[in-house]
Design a binder for these strands. Structure first.
Lengths: 350, 350
DNA sequence: GTGAAAGCGCTAACAG
DNA sequence: CTGTTAGCGCTTTCAC
């Protein structure tokens, strides 16, 4: 049914090999005359290469895989876009898998991508810290690499992988310092699940800056949450309830004057909960996020955050994968700067 | 290098055919004894099927393609997530292509997906109305279908395609009616580019409801914009500038009392522009959007909009593609209801 | 129920 | 520079 290379070759009166050479690039060269004939036949017949056949013959496909938590999440969506665009520029298609951060599903996704013989796998959201799940995933990744696959990561996944390294720690530290500069002395941090490397790095940045400014452990409340809107909402609710209970028990002013959510999505939930409780932001409590997702500036109030060039990071991960010369340092790393963006959700401490 | 089916067969002491039958399903049955042996060998050796080879032999791949404007856009991101999940449930991987609505890129993407021999193509964001570009795209799609491909669409693409049909027109009409009920009599509509079918349908819904309520052409201002934040922002700026100019020229009260942006992203831009101009929402002007993207409720103020079950729509499109019995009506359509959600951005007309 | 063998469409030596 | 040919790994008749 479909037009094959053979059909084109016959129609052009050349051999299969020649047709292949002109249509699907090759080192060897073909005379312009035959070349033109083949091209003419190809589009007269409406030839479209059979990618699986090419992948089989070449032992590598024309696709690139992306592993992330959720494409619908603005953070990952932007990365997926960057990966997709860079892949397209290289003539590749991108396979996107949303795993919700579930190690079992990540493992399965990696196997599927491996089976597809994708040219490379970009790890965008698999920042596990859990060694157990990590081992099996590493094995799957190793098997893939042993067969010529390339793995590249956004956020550290250990040495050996080309890595795009956003300055999570530095950005978080800078943000914290800025907040401290506004006079805040009691700060609540809504961080992500322990297994997420980004969450850990960002948390460390906050803690580090707080400690450097002489804040003690009691002045920095850390609350874990999923990196989702509801996670942020619930986390801030717990923080406030606890503070209020302490207040009633005699303490005073134990409420934090600022809450730093380590992801914008989370911060959106924090804002929602605060609004619902009638707590004015930033008059009573300041709020900051991280990532600077596209809608951050449209939240109520406009969210102060740390900007990361998400799409570029995705593109960079692809470049690292496809270009053996890209990246520097022994782990082939690309460092990405984070930039503090102060908007309306943060103000001088009351 | 890689472990092949042949290796497994040899290791298990059976033929290639038998190994294939047990590992990659088939109508024929194999004794439990051999079956077990093969499975044991397979995972002793760490066998992973070669998807391209399977695709070549079977003449169809284990992937599904999604064509959309931009994965990073919440509307499409949610759809992509739904498609990806449904695909995963069917054991398939999903290929995502962002085209920014550019017909040339859409055409190219369709060809790439066809070349990959994807099992189906889900058209999520190709609602062109422009017949010129449409023709070439239809041809590419037809060629794909002639070779056994299945095309399914979200939003109407003409008969012949299985279609998931959100009630754009009805939702827009209902929203408009609700606005009219709040006393608004001068309404501005920020719609999308002419080539986008969704934009047209939604616009028609608004116009229809307005006409039914006896509003004349002068009371409904229509402004086109790209369906992006900046598009919405610029559109509302044009609307206001024009109204203000008219005001100065002697007219009075020509400013609309409500602006309906036919996409939430657009509405976010509208809100931003209004905020910048110091116009209070909803006190001076009400604003409404469409889609109910996840962050709609977190905008400033919380956005009134029309909810569409985006992820479900994506999943439904996949079901339509994979299950020949799915969908009803001659065009195999699945109707999806839209629900008006009134939040803080709309209020009684001043 | 199981195996042998013929492709699927293309690439890449290898000759000429 | 061009053509011949042997696979790539798997599925699938077709015999046994």
């Amino acid at each position: 049914m479909a037009v094959t290379l053979g059909d084109v070759a016959r129609h052009a009166g050349v051999s299969l090999a020649t047709a292949s050479r002109v249509l699907n690039g090759s080192a060897r060269t073909v005379t312009e005359e035959l070349s033109a004939k083949v091209r003419a036949s190809a589009d007269a017949l409406g030839y479209l290469p059979n990618a699986p056949a090419q992948a089989l013959a070449r032992a590598t496909g024309a696709t690139i895989g992306v592993l992330l938590h959720d494409v619908a999440d603005p953070y990952f969506g932007a990365i997926a876009r960057g990966v997709g665009d860079a892949a397209a520029r290289a003539g590749l298609l991108s396979l996107v898998t949303s795993t919700d951060g579930d190690p079992e599903r990540e493992l399965h996704a990696i196997r599927m991508l491996h089976a597809q013989r994708v040219r490379a796998i970009v790890l965008a959201g698999s920042g596990y810290t859990d060694p157990d799940a990590g081992r099996r995933i590493d094995e799957a990744l190793a098997a893939y690499r042993d067969q010529g696959g390339i793995v590249t990561a956004i956020t550290d996944h250990g040495p050996g992988y080309g890595t795009v390294l956003p300055d999570n720690r530095g950005g978080a530290a800078e943000l914290t310092t800025a907040l401290l500069g506004l006079g805040h002395r009691r700060i609540a941090v809504v961080t992500g699940p322990e297994r997420m490397r980004v969450a850990q790095e960002r948390l460390e940045g906050v803690l580090e800056a707080a400690a450097a400014a002489g804040l003690g452990g009691e002045e920095v409340l850390v609350e874990r949450a999923e990196f989702t809107r509801d996670g942020g909402r619930a986390a801030v609710a717990r923080i406030l309830d606890r503070a209020d209970r302490a207040d009633r028990a005699g303490g005073a002013g134990v409420r934090p004057s600022v809450v730093v959510a380590l992801s914008d999505i989370c911060a959106a939930g924090v804002l929602a909960e605060l609004r619902e409780r009638g707590i004015a932001v930033p008059e009573e409590i300041s709020v900051a996020g991280f990532d600077d997702i596209p809608l951050a500036t449209d939240l109520a109030p406009a969210l102060s955050t740390v900007r990361l060039p998400l799409a570029d990071m995705g593109a960079e991960a692809v470049r690292l994968a496809l270009d053996p010369a890209a990246g520097s340092g022994d782990g082939r790393q690309v460092l990405v700067a984070a930039e503090v963006v102060l908007r309306a959700s943060t103000a001088q401490a009351p």
